[in-house]
């Protein structure tokens, strides 16, 4: 059985991966800067105020309500994509240009696609169990939950 949730594609790309879902807003800068400094091969969330603290989100479909935090967000995300340790995709209720910029720059300048889909009601997103396989289509702006 599959279930499709329609949203908006903020950046292009089509991927499939396991969902990591958090109801807490997510600071990409606070979470990912430290593993980048450490040249880590994993992407363990370094934000000690976050419930995903220490969880490796590399290659996952990361799902949260909306991003927060400082302006480095875009190029921090870009760097994780460029180094090949990024999540596979981001899905949220309310995206914002800063976060999109990392993915769009990655596409335009490096030809590396990283789909971000937003405008999906978080009440629906939070029902996705962790580890569920999710198909993310940034070109058309939807996700498909594969059970």
């Amino acid at each position: 059985m599959t279930k499709i949730l329609k949203g908006r594609g903020l950046s292009e790309g089509i991927v499939e991966g396991e969902a990591v879902v958090t109801s807490q807003p997510f600071s990409i800068s606070a979470a990912f800067t430290f593993p980048l400094i450490q040249f880590s091969k994993k992407l363990k969330v370094a934000d000690r105020t976050h419930e995903l603290y220490k969880k490796n989100v590399s290659n996952k479909v990361l799902i949260f309500p909306y991003p927060i935090g400082t302006t480095t967000l875009g190029f921090v995300l870009l760097e994780t994509i460029h180094r090949g340790i990024a999540p596979k995709a981001i899905v949220c209720e309310r995206g914002e240009p800063l976060m999109s910029s990392g993915a769009v720059i990655s596409d335009i300048f490096f030809g590396l696609k990283f789909p971000i889909v937003d405008q999906i009601d978080f009440e629906k997103l939070k029902q996705i169990p962790n580890g569920t396989l999710v198909h993310v289509n940034g070109n058309e702006g939807y996700i498909e939950i594969i059970e």
Partner: peptide, 15 residues
């Protein structure tokens, strides 16, 4: 903002 060339802005610095 470019974090003045810390070791984690390679991609941005390249652009």
């Amino acid at each position: 903002v470019l974090n003045f060339g810390l070791n984690f802005v390679n991609a941005a610095a390249q652009v």
